[in-house]
Design a protein around this nucleic acid. Structure first.
Lengths: 116, 116
DNA sequence: GCCCTCGCGCAACCTTTAGTTGCATGTTGC
DNA sequence: GCAACATGCAACTAAAGGTTGCGCGAGGGC
């Protein structure tokens, strides 16, 4: 139920390299494909493709400065993504708690009838 | 920083079909590849592969009953996964707040110096 | 007991995506 | 003007999600 139209956001942040890139952009501030690739175990071209993906879903946006292209996180969009994450998390959490409650109820019933 | 060894868990729940499958197993209780495929837009074989992935990372476990194979969610492992999710979420959230605070401080400085 | 059905697993194949290498283009600084 | 550097584009490989087709074992009528 929780996942529907926002699969794009999920698949964007689902990739480990892209998650690390977002981490880097948040902790070190705006960066380029080259600067990010120096801190990642992949080539600049791979980073460039990921930047394109993140840009397309709006999680980051670029600004050209001469021969460099500076990318930075779009705060509002990332906040939306985080909201999606915690939504799914809390949905599952709620269901787990419900299941546990039912299991305990059954356990109680079983224990009560054991003396028959 | 947040993502390291647990990339397996992430990639397991990163797939939209697998997320839906977990949803179904939680809401409808244990199910088979066939029963799940009836409620999903993919074939039984695709579902079967996803079940194998989820089984491998321990998010679900199977139980053979005659010719059927019943899968159900491993509550502890899913709880762990949910924890990972919210960990990343709150990390990003914290960084976003920090950035916002800094941005506001800069804005204040700029506004103060505007009268020069 | 026999057969028909159903659920499953295996194998071959297609498509997308993350990754690579190689090359051409545009900027900067001296 | 030229060397150095950041980028973009193209071709290729590898892995993953998906499909179809097949063969097999377990169950349920008759």
């Amino acid at each position: 139920m929780s996942t529907a139209i926002d699969d794009e956001l999920w698949s964007a942040i689902g990739d480990p390299t892209r998650r690390t890139m977002i981490d880097l952009l948040l902790s070190d501030g705006p960066g380029t494909a080259t600067s990010l690739s120096r801190r990642l175990p992949v080539t600049r071209q791979a980073v460039s493709k990921h930047l394109a993906v993140l840009d397309r879903v709006g999680l980051i946006h670029a600004e050209s400065a001469g021969r460099e292209r500076h990318y930075q996180v779009d705060e509002a969009q990332l906040a939306r993504a985080v909201a999606q994450l915690s939504a799914v998390g809390s949905t599952w959490d709620a269901r787990l708690r419900r299941i546990k409650r039912i299991a305990e109820a059954i356990e109680r019933t079983r224990t009560n009838n054991e003396g028959e």
